[in-house]
Design a protein around this nucleic acid. Structure first.
Length: 594
RNA sequence: GCACCCAUAGCUCAGCUGGAUAGAGUGUUGCCCUCCGAAGGCAAAGGUCACUGGUUCGAAUCCAGUUGGGUGCGCCA
């Protein structure tokens, strides 16, 4: 599989090299205007500086090197030294044909695949998911799919938040509320009842209450710390109770992931790393990394000292807190032990953490400690942060009632909106009810995911419910609509006995569509290298747009000749294939009709 | 106090190695369904790229500073 842009860049790179210049100058990009041709190369301008020559002369030399190339219809020097390149229709047709027969629609496979773990979503015990979890879930899922598609071996891990002080809080709060439960009896060894004494709604009521109380009530805080330490030390009653918390939380979380079409290869929890902690602490101690500090045991990871507000000096990066003064494992302890666990189980080349940007410093601390202790090199650990979700007022998002919007409610809303849209448009009234509701679900989830994935992950963004509920313009449903129309055409072609045929003469909109198809690999590589799914989302949108323009101008089934019809069917088929792959990599399912 | 991130059209956002007249969507104003699905297409209007200075033939992009906003800063995760 070759690509027009890549081949062109390669040819220009050779020409630059022939002039004694950096081959990287041969990079090309899609022309920004139709009159500039198909691609432009700006390397002559940058190269001119290096060897002190006129950029137009260099550009002219490059142009003459392409003059005899049969793929190039036109290559001209413009302005101060831009090179505008137009491909021949023969080259475009050849490229479209290649994509049409390639099962990967033009996407290459990595020459050197790696083993990668993607840590994403981060659901927690006792907390149902809200809109804030949306990004962590769907961005991580898209990253996983993109990496896997390009050839890496990838494990997605939910990294279930089932450990630490929050568990102690729940235990202490429940002990206050129902002290007679058998789990709380001193020295109780069990067996304990199979039936959980609480359900998720109990936990969701208890947890915020306990967390708030612990902020003001030192007694509550102490009881929770003690419970945390005892749970981690293995107190049977607490372990049994903790198991209940996990078992009532997990199914609800899995329901949400299923609705979003998100799956995990591993559902490991923070607790799974717990057994490794004692040995890890001993190891850190043996390596001389563990130090006593303010009653806790820490690993210092700073590289310099900086002045602090009280006038004293402190480390520029806070130390990793390994053992609290209560003797409990902390967030960072678990994360460090999880790295050891992952290394042991999977020996990954890279671990990607898809977690809120606000935790950047925490991960930096953990990664440095891991490198210092020799568990994983620093560059094999990467935190992919994303911004917070704000309301239209620019402040952290809240519903009108002032609470958080649950993910389940959001999904329900978009699905209902999609259902209403289908009903109102009167489409498919004769379709089975089950299919109509399935379509509504797919359309709704597509809207939800694309609204988020089209933004660069790094910055905070505004959560506007209306935007998520919009199905027009640059939205998920627009992409589905384009795909569904192609499916419909191909279905009708099949019924009428029309066949796909070789590509022939091209209209301008067809050339544009082919050039867009050609850019798939570039977009995929960008999304992969930058760990930024929005680059792929943008390509999918461009592709759907290029098809829609083509569709509006060029009749396919009603083409003037059967040769032309066959050619356009082939182009439509290639477009559909690539669009479906792109959507799948974004985690968006496409219905057959809508 | 220190550190990191951000500032682009009325609104929500793209802008890849610095490159030609800064792009989408939405909203506003037009036009297009006797013809493959109008959740669509075509077009117009709309920007001192927060501000100032610097580097460069050339800066939204790189550097410095200013202003405005966000986030974080050891015993929550």
């Amino acid at each position: 599989m070759t690509h027009l842009a890549q081949d062109l860049a390669h040819k220009l790179a050779c020409a630059f090299e022939g002039l004694g210049l950096d081959p990287a100058l041969g990079a090309v990009s899609r022309a920004q205007k139709a009159e500039f041709g198909h691609f432009q190369c700006n390397g002559a301008l940058a190269g001119a500086k290096a060897i002190g020559k006129n950029p137009r002369e260099i550009a002219a030399t490059l142009a003459s090197s392409l003059a005899t190339d049969s793929d190039i219809a036109l290559c001209e020097v413009a302005g101060p030294g831009f090179l505008n390149i137009t491909f021949s229709d023969a080259a475009l047709v050849r490229q479209a044909t290649q994509i049409a027969v390639d099962p990967r629609a033009g996407a290459l496979i990595l020459a050197q695949p790696r083993k990668i773990i993607v840590d994403y979503a981060g659901p927690n015990v006792a907390k149902s998911m809200h809109v804030g979890h949306l990004r962590a879930t769907i961005i991580g899922d898209a990253i996983k799919r993109i990496y896997r598609f390009r050839g890496d071996t990838v494990w997605g891990d939910a990294h279930f938040g089932d450990w630490g002080f929050q568990m102690g809080l729940l235990i202490a709060a429940l002990a206050d509320e129902q002290p007679d439960l058998p789990y709380f009896a001193e020295g109780a060894e069990g067996p304990f009842p199979n039936q959980s004494p609480v359900d998720l709604s109990d936990l969701e009521r208890i947890y915020p209450m306990a967390a708030a109380l612990a902020k003001t009530d030192t007694g509550m805080r102490e009881r929770a710390r003690k419970a945390t330490a005892e749970l981690q030390a293995g107190r049977a009653g607490y372990r049994a109770l903790w198991q209940c918390f996990v078992s009532v939380s997990q199914p609800t979380l899995e329901r949400e992931f299923k609705a979003l079409g998100v799956t995990f290869d591993l559902w490991l929890g923070e607790s799974d790393a717990d057994p490794l902690i004692p040995a890890m602490i001993a190891d850190l101690e043996a390596k001389g990394l563990l130090q006593d500090d303010q009653g806790a045991r820490v690993v210092f990871v700073h590289d310099k000292m900086v002045p602090k507000k009280d006038g004293s000096e402190g480390p520029n990066v806070p130390p990793l807190l390994v053992v609290s003064s209560e003797g409990s494992a902390m967030y960072g302890t678990t994360d460090l032990a999880t790295i050891i666990d992952r290394k042991k189980r999977f020996d990954p080349d890279l671990i990607i953490y898809c977690v809120d940007q606000r935790q950047a410093e925490h991960f930096e601390t953990v990664f440095r400690a891991a490198a210092k202790a020799g568990y994983m090199p620093r560059e094999a650990l990467d935190h992919i942060g994303f911004g917070t979700m704000n309301g239209t007022d620019g402040k952290p998002f809240k519903t009108r009632e002032g609470g958080v919007l649950k993910l389940h409610d959001l999904i329900t809303q978009v699905r209902e909106k999609a259902q209403a849209k289908i009903d109102e448009a009167g489409v498919g009234l004769e379709w089975p009810a089950s299919e109509r509701s399935d379509i509504a679900h797919k359309v709704g989830v597509a809207a939800l995911k694309f609204a988020d994935l089209q933004n660069f992950r790094g910055t905070s963004y505004v959560f506007d419910l209306d935007r998520f509920l919009s199905f027009e313009g640059k939205t998920g449903p627009y992409l589905l609509y384009a795909a569904v129309r192609i499916k419909s055409i191909l279905r009708k072609a099949l019924e009428a006995g029309h066949r796909l045929g070789p590509m022939t003469t091209l209209e301008p909109s067809e050339r544009d569509l082919i050039l867009t198809l050609d850019g798939f690999e570039h977009a995929l590589r960008g999304a992969y290298d930058k760990r930024a799914p929005h680059i792929l989302a943008d390509h999918a949108y461009s592709l759907a747009g290029a098809f829609s323009s083509f569709y509006a101008i060029c009749p396919i089934l009603g083409a003037e000749t059967s040769v032309l019809r066959g050619s356009r069917l082939t182009l439509a088929q290639a477009t559909l294939k690539q669009l479906l792959i792109a959507l799948e990599l974004l985690g968006i399912e496409t219905p057959d009709r809508m």
